[in-house]
């Protein structure tokens, strides 16, 4: 087990990405932050807070559950919990900042895009991830990346956040 990011580093990353989002979108006017359940939801809220400090603007922030859009129905081993989708605004014509904790195969992001399209027709979807661990199985890339970490498939990335009762950190764990 190896610590990849600590509390302070995560805080800096959130701050940097908040600035990048504001810069790339020339402000916050048409933005909507949407976190993928569960880790992404907490990170989206942190970005909201950071953007508010920098720009003094309230960007709408919501959560997206992608369970019903996954492509492994009938073949996955565990029973998945269907969590809440709570998007506070009409996403049509908005610039959506989709937030997830770890970008891996890209399949969750494909599911998330399908889920979003059922809620409306965004002008644009941009992707933010805390960790990009490579091994993509679909042609998907992130617009804002906290940290690139080349991993092997026999390793796991664990993002532990205060909102879930942990101390903020990101761990690299060897699978049994």
């Amino acid at each position: 087990m190896k610590e990849l990011l600590n509390k302070k580093e995560i805080e800096r990353i959130i701050s940097r990405i908040a600035h990048e989002i504001i810069e790339k979108n020339r402000g916050t006017g048409n933005l909507c932050l949407i976190g993928i359940q569960r880790g992404g939801v907490h990170l989206a809220k942190r970005l909201f807070t950071r953007i508010k400090i920098v720009e003094n603007a309230d960007v709408p922030v919501g959560s997206l559950d992608i369970t019903l859009y996954r492509d492994d129905v009938g073949i996955r081993k565990e029973q998945l919990i269907v969590r809440k989708t709570d998007v506070p605004c009409d996403i049509t014509d908005k610039n959506i900042i989709l937030v997830d904790d770890v970008l891996f195969t890209g399949r969750s992001i494909r599911a998330a895009m399908d889920a979003l399209m059922d809620l409306g027709r965004p002008a644009q979807i941009q992707l933010t991830v805390l960790i990009d661990r490579e091994h993509r199985e679909l042609p998907i890339m992130a617009d804002y990346i906290g940290k690139n970490i080349p991993t092997s498939r026999s390793e796991d990335i664990e993002v532990q956040l205060e909102e879930e009762g942990f101390e903020d950190k990101v761990l690299l764990i060897a699978k049994q």
Binding site: D65, L68, Y69, R83, T85, D114, D118, L119
Partner: peptide, 14 residues
């Protein structure tokens, strides 16, 4: 969660 789906414009999930 499924009840929320029924409140959307697109009430169908894959």
């Amino acid at each position: 969660s499924f009840k929320d789906v029924l409140k959307r414009d697109i009430k169908k999930v894959p």
